[in-house]
Amino acid sequence: MISRIDAFFKERTSLQVTTACLLLVLVLAALDHATGYELSFSIFYLLPIAFTTWYARMVHGVLLSIVSASVWLIVDITAGNQYSQSFIPLWNAGVRFLFFVVTAWLLTTVRDQLEKERSMARLDGLTGVMNGFAFTESAQTVLRIADRFDRPTAIGYIDLDNFKRVNDTLGHAEGDKVLKTVASVLSTCVRKADLVGRLGGDEFVVLLPETTYSGAATVFGNMRESLLKKAGEKGWPIGLSIGVAVFLTAPSNLNEAIRLADTLMYRVKKSGKNQLLIEAYGRPELTGHPLNTRRPREPRGAHPQAPGS
């Protein structure tokens, strides 16, 4: 029940949520007036304020706080409640307004902190790129869209060569710097729509939607050059073994797609490391039959990067 209510309000705009909660305040005010001043409705006024603050913005929560305090004041006066001093109703209305605003502020703080923790839970703690869970979740969504519209996709598997040597000779702190630098360079070389994730250790994965063979060759070639240049500047004795699977038609199985890219990466490892290997696959890719003899036609002037360049 709660999950359904949450989903319902998340699908609504801030204006729709605020309007619905405003109507609820007016209904509560009518009930409050009808029952007289002896029955308190204070707790019920908090509900629309809480919903507005949580699913819209704090400014909407403050707006609803003003309305709630005002209608409560009107109901209080028109219900016939007698006070010893004329300013007391105004004082009570001010106190109620402050109580409503503090509640809205606290809810906003809790919501922002919760969203921050959810975001952090999806990121790798060291490098700041997506962790394995977040990458898998996002990549599956991207592949579903690519499959629906029959669009090409590229997945690259990147493993650092001689990374253990960095940890053994330069220390783990320097090894952490290497991983952070790799993640930073990868993130810089891709578009906003692309995905970068760390699967653990010194292994990274990159998904490029709307990317053909020539596009993948350009992007991963630039990645490799930038990372090797950075490693040379820092004096890090590392290389990069990169396997890239380009799917002419988006794969429907993410795990199998990553496995194919991983297999290409291991072929690089076995052939001497520190190289880039790209292969194109058609819909039969899930049976393991690459289209090595029929790569997609390249745009005029394109020069696909050969494996090992």
Rank of each mutant, 00 (worst) to 15 (best):
R4N: 10
I5Y: 10
F9G: 02
F9N: 05
T13Y: 04
T13D: 08
S14K: 13
L15F: 11
Q16D: 08
T18G: 10
T19N: 00
A20R: 01
L24R: 10
L31Y: 03
G36L: 08
E38C: 13
S40Y: 08
S42F: 15
S42T: 14
I43H: 12
Y45I: 14
I49F: 12
T52M: 14
T52N: 04
A56K: 11
A56N: 13
V59I: 09
V62W: 08
L63V: 11
V67T: 09
S70R: 04
S70N: 05
V71C: 14
L73K: 06
V75D: 14
V75T: 14
V75P: 06
I77E: 13
I77M: 10
I77R: 15
A79M: 13
S84N: 10
Q85W: 05
S86R: 08
S86Q: 07
I88A: 05
P89H: 03
G94E: 07
V95C: 07
R96E: 12
L98R: 02
F100I: 08
V101S: 11
V101K: 03
V102R: 06
V102Q: 09
A104Q: 05
T108P: 00
R111D: 04
Q113N: 08
L123F: 08
G125I: 01
G128I: 04
F135G: 00
T141G: 02
T141S: 05
T141E: 01
T141Y: 01
V142N: 01
A146P: 01
R148D: 06
P152A: 09
T153L: 03
G156M: 05
G156V: 11
I158D: 06
D159M: 09
F163G: 02
F163N: 01
L170S: 07
H172Y: 09
H172N: 10
E174D: 12
G175Y: 09
K177T: 11
K180A: 15
S184F: 14
S184R: 15
S187E: 13
T188L: 15
R191C: 05
K192N: 15
G197W: 07
R198A: 09
L199P: 12
D202W: 03
V205K: 08
V206L: 14
E210N: 11
T212M: 04
S214I: 06
A216F: 05
A217P: 00
A217E: 06
T218P: 00
T218D: 02
F220E: 00
G221A: 00
R224Y: 01
E225N: 03
E225L: 07
K230C: 12
W236S: 00
W236T: 02
I238E: 00
G239N: 04
A245G: 15
T249S: 10
P251E: 04
P251M: 08
L254P: 09
N255M: 10
M265W: 08
V268H: 02
V268N: 06
K270T: 11
K273G: 09
L276R: 07
L276G: 07
L277E: 05
I278L: 15
R283D: 12
E285R: 01
L286P: 00
G288Q: 07
H289K: 13
R295S: 13
E298A: 13
P299L: 10
G301Y: 14
H303D: 09
Q305R: 11
A306G: 02
P307E: 05
S309G: 01
